[in-house]
Structure formats: structure tokens, C-alpha cells
């Protein structure tokens, strides 16, 4: 497999690189597979094997998934909340970041320096948990779905990545178009936007993952009474029962799903929930991998 032209040292080095990289890839992959395997395990098999199910169970069953969707409707509500907030945050966030990034990238725009100063300042000097909570409270957003969307709509990092991208576009095209009488808006619409599909893809995907994965905002902004606004990730975190002791104590209805009765072990239900909550990201990832990587490159080159 490895054709070493050089010395033994060369071969050993290649072998080491090859092995370690491969091992690390397995380390990344296996826990994921393990989670999936456990979600398929039946109660009988789990007891028999003393919890040592390391590969696909002998008698895989989707009973855990069925139970999740049949016990109550919370899962559907929370899925809907997650999808809705992800959609709104992605569209809104990408547009807002693009506007700010585009304006910051215009070298000749009067006021650009002031604006850049403000943006950079807000990156390095932020407020903490409590002031942010109070602002959301003052705006009467607490316990509404907007509390999960509006406060994080503007991400100045993403705006700066947009800025990098727009600033790197060849300015000759724009200048000559401008001299031909094209207005800036037409230029944005007809020249810039068609060229910037990759960056929009990258940033939208980043925001999408961010917002699909966020749960902490739900924990602080949405109380038990409004549990129909809890997104999936927060719901999953609650079934692990660690934080319920600090979060007003009552997540009983949610716990119902991982009750003790039934033909599936608790752990299988929990892992099934985990798989449901990570599935969208996992399914989307292979298609968009190159955009994610590109996004990092663009953010890195400053």
C-alpha cells in the first residue's frame, strides 16, 4: 500500500502519520456509531449483556424511536420550534451579517472607520449573561420564540468574514460598472450577489448549525410554563436530568419519555433522542462540507 522510495525512516514516518490520522478518525466516528447502536438495543439484550453493547445489537429494534414519538407530542412541538427558529435565524442572520459586511468592505464609504471601530469594539468588549438577560426582559421578549432569535441575529464575526470576502472581490469590475452608470444597488444585485453564493452558503450553514445546536438561550429565556417553546436540544438536555435541579425543578412531563416501564432501556431512549437531535446536522454535513471549510479559510485569512 505504501510505496516508500526513500529510506526506512521515510517509510516509518509515513506509517506513523497514516496510523495516527486513521486512529483519530475512528475515535471521532466510533462514539457516534455507539450512540446509534445503543439506541437500537432492546431491554432484554441490554440486561443480558450487562450494558456491554459495543456493536450493532443482535436484535436491533426501533422501539425507542417509536416510544419517543408515541408517548407525547412534545417531541413534535420541540422539533417545530427548532426548525422555525433555525430558519428565521439563518435567513435573518445571513442578511444582517451580509449588509454589515458589505458596508464595511466599501473602502470609499464615508463613516466606514467609525463603523469598523464600533464593530471591533463589540467583538472584544461584550456584556455578560445578566445584562443581556435584562435587555431581553426589557424588550418583553422573555418567553417568546423571538428571545431565541433576535438577540443572536447579529453575529459580528460573520459580518467580518463577509467583509473579507467582499473586500477581496476584484474592484476593477465594480469601478468600471460604476463608471458606466450602474448604481451601487444595481451593482450589488447584479454583480456582487451572484458572485457571492459560496460565502452566503458558508455563513448560512454556520448560522444554521449554531442555531440548531443552541439550548442555553432556551434555558435562560423560556420558563417551564412556556415549555412548548423549548427547542429540541434543550429538551434532550433535560432528559439527562442534570440541570433540572437548577431549572425550577419541574420537567416531569419531559421525563415521562424516559420512564422506567416498557420494553426499551432508558439509555436507549436517551440515545435515540440524541440521534434525532443530531441527525439533521449529520445528514446535511457531507453535502456542505466544502462550504464549512471554505468559511473557516475566509475567517482565518485576515
Amino acid at each position: 500500500m505504501l510505496k516508500s522510495k526513500g529510506s526506512v525512516g521515510e517509510f516509518i514516518y509515513q506509517a506513523v502519520c497514516f496510523t495516527i490520522a486513521g486512529l483519530f478518525a475512528l475515535v471521532c466516528l466510533y462514539p457516534l456509531l455507539y450512540t446509534f447502536f445503543v439506541s437500537l438495543v432492546s431491554k432484554a439484550e441490554w440486561t443480558d449483556s450487562n450494558g456491554l453493547v459495543m456493536f450493532l445489537p443482535r436484535h436491533p429494534t426501533f422501539a425507542a424511536y417509536v416510544r419517543i414519538f408515541k408517548t407525547n407530542t412534545y417531541i413534535l412541538t420541540s422539533l417545530w420550534v427548532s426548525v422555525l427558529k433555525t430558519l428565521l435565524r439563518t435567513v435573518g442572520g445571513a442578511v444582517v451579517a451580509a449588509i454589515l459586511g458589505y458596508v464595511l468592505s466599501r473602502q470609499k464609504l464615508p463613516g466606514k472607520k467609525l463603523l469598523t471601530g464600533v464593530v471591533v469594539f463589540t467583538i472584544f468588549f461584550g456584556a455578560g449573561l445578566i445584562p443581556n438577560y435584562m435587555v431581553v426582559q426589557e424588550l418583553n421578549l422573555v418567553n417568546t420564540i423571538w428571545s431565541l432569535i433576535v438577540p443572536c441575529l447579529l453575529n459580528t464575526w460573520y459580518a467580518l468574514i463577509f467583509k473579507q470576502f467582499f473586500a477581496a472581490l476584484p474592484s476593477e469590475v465594480e469601478e468600471s460598472a460604476y463608471l458606466d452608470g450602474t448604481t451601487e444597488l444595481q451593482m450589488l444585485w447584479k454583480i456582487i450577489l451572484p458572485m457571492s453564493k459560496p460565502i452566503f452558503a458558508s455563513i448560512s450553514l454556520f448560522i444554521m448549525v449554531d442555531s440548531w445546536n443552541s439550548w442555553f438561550d432556551a434555558m435562560i429565556y423560556i420558563d417551564v410554563v412556556h415549555s412548548d417553546l423549548w427547542p429540541l436540544q434543550y429538551y434532550v438536555s433535560l432528559t439527562f436530568n442534570n440541570l433540572t435541579q437548577v431549572d425550577q425543578g419541574t420537567a416531569g412531563d419531559w421525563q415521562e419519555i424516559v420512564g422506567t416501564s416498557g420494553d426499551v432501556p432508558d439509555i436507549a431512549v436517551r440515545m435515540a433522542l440524541t440521534i434525532i437531535s443530531l441527525l439533521p446536522v449529520l445528514v446535511a454535513y457531507p453535502f456542505f462540507q466544502k462550504y464549512f471549510v471554505k468559511g473557516v479559510y475566509m475567517g482565518a485569512i485576515k
Binding site: 445546536n213 439550548w215 436540544q233 434543550y234 439527562f240 440515545m271 433522542l273 443530531l278 446536522v281 449529520l282
Partner: peptide, 23 residues
């Protein structure tokens, strides 16, 4: 290898906790 090692980054901490819990 690169494709595989980027995957965990996209999971939320909730998911990572869940997996750690399983182990």
C-alpha cells in the same frame, strides 16, 4: 480522514454530553 474528524465539531454540547453519558 478529514471528513470524519470535522464531524464532532457540528454537534451541540448537549449531544456531546449525551455521548459522554453513554460511555
Amino acid at each position: 480522514v478529514q471528513t470524519l474528524i470535522y464531524i464532532p465539531h457540528f454537534f451541540s454540547w448537549v449531544v456531546v454530553y449525551a455521548i459522554a453519558y453513554a460511555f
